[in-house]
Write a protein that binds this DNA or RNA. Structure first.
Length: 278
DNA sequence: TATGCCCTCGTGAACAGGAG
DNA sequence: CTCCTGTTCACGAGGGCATA
């Protein structure tokens, strides 16, 4: 396991340890994470490994680059870098907490002061932490995913534009030609698809995604820096009886499966597996 | 009440048989 | 021989029940 992963998997509460490099978000990073497909619901799967109930729909995270230039070989190489990894952490949300409000999940830009307040809240709100080393982890399945690169976004209508460092509102306006879906039709994209995430207990949760590159560890021998972070919207995990059922797959999920991400299970539109017959 | 297990549904894959 | 169509099998997914 690369240096730094162990801290991410078993990291301690902030209050008990000084900020370690793996928890520091690089402020000069060009990288952004965008939660392309938000988790909406899940069925609690219990403590065992036999009963796996994946989060529905599977969260899909996309890398965005500041001032991305599709004509730049360097930028394209970055998107195709196989050493990127996105780790996923699960945090319970208390219904009374303002923390449950959806905030920066679309931008991935975290206000550090507010984040510190949240960390404090999480340590004092009495809600079980998924990263508590003395409790059973709530999240099971593949919490770390490798990148899945596609040369053309399978769902350009929902594709976010890459952020621009130029603060010209015209550039970010929907009428701008660059931001038009047709302009993003053949734009490459790198996704991290969490198709095998399941949660053991019912409740309200959010997922935190952290972008890392273990290539930087090989080069420096230091702990792994976090290049970007993003939060999912709050979603509910239902007890077996109350689970409303799986939703049909999105256009994006269908497209990614067709492009070769076979681990992604799709449902609806005449696809999906069924059951044994008598 | 939570959780593990069982049953059923529905589809894809594999295969066989017939038509051209 | 190839292609098309129908049938059968295997399996993952989802719902619901039994039990601790």
């Amino acid at each position: 396991m690369p240096h730094g992963f162990d801290k991410l998997l078993h990291h301690e509460p902030e209050a008990e340890s000084p900020p370690a490099p793996p928890r520091r978000l690089s402020t000069q990073s060009r990288y952004h994470l965008h939660v392309r497909q938000q988790p909406i619901a899940a069925r609690a799967c219990g403590a065992g490994d036999r009963d796996r109930r994946p989060v529905d729909p599977p969260p899909i995270v996309q890398i965005l680059l500041n001032d991305f230039d599709s004509n730049s070989q360097e930028d394209n190489d970055i998107l195709q870098d196989p050493r990127f990894t996105v780790g996923c952490l699960l945090f319970p949300v208390s219904p009374q907490s303002p923390w449950s409000e959806p905030t920066e999940s679309d931008t991935g830009d975290l206000d550090q002061d507010r984040e510190k307040d949240r960390e404090k809240d999480r340590d004092t709100d009495g809600v079980a932490r998924t990263d508590d080393p003395f409790s059973t982890p709530l999240l099971s399945g593949k919490a770390f995913m490798s990148p899945f690169y596609v040369e053309a976004d399978p769902d350009p209508n929902s594709a976010p534009p890459h952020p621009s460092s130029i603060n010209d509102p015209r550039l970010s306006s929907p009428s701008n030609a660059y931001n038009h879906p047709s302009a993003r039709l053949h734009q490459p994209a790198t996704f991290f698809i969490f198709a095998d995430l399941s949660i053991r207990s019912a409740g309200l949760y959010r997922l935190q995604f952290r972008l890392m590159n273990w290539g930087s560890v090989e080069d420096t021998g230091q702990s792994m820096p976090i290049l970007a972070e993003a939060w999912s919207d709050p979603f509910r995990v239902y007890p077996a009886k109350d689970f409303p059922g799986m939703r049909d797959s999105s256009i994006l999920a269908e497209g990614l499966k067709e492009l070769g991400f076979v681990e992604l299970k799709t449902r609806g539109h005449g696809k999906g597996k069924g059951k044994k017959r008598r």
